[in-house]
């Protein structure tokens, strides 16, 4: 009986050792780890508030916010693609902060307007593709320049793209093509490209990385990821599709029911300021910041130099559109075959 008593006491210790401490800000971050850490560090230096940081993918954060609804354990959600932020706003998981966004670029203000102030735009990432130049040179295949090029038979088994059912990046691509070519035409093209696809990956950034390492010839993804890989020394070239391309809109949201609303507001104000956004270059963040005065890299894609579509976030971020498009993708694109190992 003695040991039971002892272990009971030990267990009691664990049950009750709740180390909640109200003076901190809990941030969940969907950007790259280094960027998450750097921002938290700078935030502490500039505001004196200690921000505890954990990195999770947007899907994980959304799942967590839903599970914790009504009693959230995080205060702010920073980064990641905008769609889940919009969904969170629509599901009443986040709260409007009333932070002044008048100094930001137009698309960031639109994001705020669209969500009733619940999500504020922090960056834009442009969609494109990357090819492994060593591989294409060795095979003597001309590099692609347009979305339609990807359907050419010479790329058979050489294209990699994520599965839109699991990846927001791939969903952005699907929605972009639909907006670019009209729905029927887009699915026809996707099925043709599908015949060349060697693998539908789970993660949105995996195809780009696979292209960098030569595991596939062409990968579709966000251009800022590609810039980073190129600068690291991988033999890839970045292509902005000639027909025009779509983009993701990264955001920051404050979780509804947070006990630290004031500190959370300060975080939002900080990450949309030029001082907050500029240091991103130090850790290889090459997306386009929402503050016009934030520093950018000359090699990074800019919105001025690339043909962009007018991406309709309200329509294509809505759950009904999403489910319909994805169901059709499953039937018309994945069901049509493709994704065969060569």
């Amino acid at each position: 009986m003695k040991t039971i008593a002892i272990s009971a006491l030990a267990l009691a210790a664990f049950f009750t050792a709740n180390s909640a401490n109200a003076e901190q800000l809990n941030v969940v971050c969907s950007n790259e780890q280094a960027w998450c850490d750097l921002m938290a560090q700078n935030f502490k230096i500039d505001t004196g508030i200690d921000a505890a940081m954990v990195r999770k993918s947007t899907g994980e954060v959304l799942a967590q916010l839903r599970a914790e609804k009504g009693n959230p354990k995080v205060d702010v959600w920073w980064g990641g693609t905008g769609d889940p932020h919009i969904i969170a706003a629509n599901e009443d998981l986040t709260v409007a902060t009333g932070v002044d966004v008048s100094g930001l670029l137009g698309w960031a203000r639109n994001m705020t307007e669209m969500t009733g102030g619940r999500a504020v735009g922090v960056h834009v990432g442009l969609l494109g593709f990357a090819y492994n130049k060593e591989f294409l040179a060795e095979k003597k295949i001309a590099p692609p320049a347009c979305w339609r090029d990807l359907a050419k038979p010479e790329y058979k088994g050489e294209i990699q793209v994520a599965n839109p059912n699991s990846s927001g990046t791939a969903y952005t691509e699907l929605a972009t093509l639909v907006q670019l070519f009209g729905e029927d035409e887009a699915y026809k093209l996707l099925a043709e490209i599908g015949a060349n696809v060697n693998q539908y990956t789970k993660s949105g950034s995996a195809p780009t990385k696979a292209a960098a390492r030569g595991e596939t010839a062409i990968g579709i993804g966000f251009m800022h990821d590609m810039v980073k890989l190129k600068k690291e020394g991988f033999p890839i070239e970045i292509v902005a599709p000639c027909e025009g391309t779509g983009y993701e809109l990264g955001a920051v949201s404050v979780v509804k029911g947070t006990p630290n609303l004031e500190a959370a507001k300060k975080w939002v104000e900080y990450v949309i300021s030029a001082e907050g956004q500029s240091p991103g270059l130090e850790v290889g963040v090459y997306n386009i910041p929402s503050h016009p005065d934030a520093k950018t890299d000359p090699e990074a894609p800019s919105m001025a130099s690339i043909k962009l579509i007018d991406y309709n976030f309200a329509t294509y971020g809505a759950s009904e559109t999403r489910e319909r498009l994805l169901a059709r993708w499953e039937k018309d694109v994945k069901g049509a075959g493709g994704a065969v190992e060569n």
């Binding site: 899907g59 839903r66 059912n165 699991s166 927001g168 789970k202 994805l326």
Partner: peptide, 9 residues
């Protein structure tokens, strides 16, 4: 995993 964290939860 992807049924929980995927594009459509």
């Amino acid at each position: 995993y992807f049924a929980i964290v995927g594009t459509v939860a």
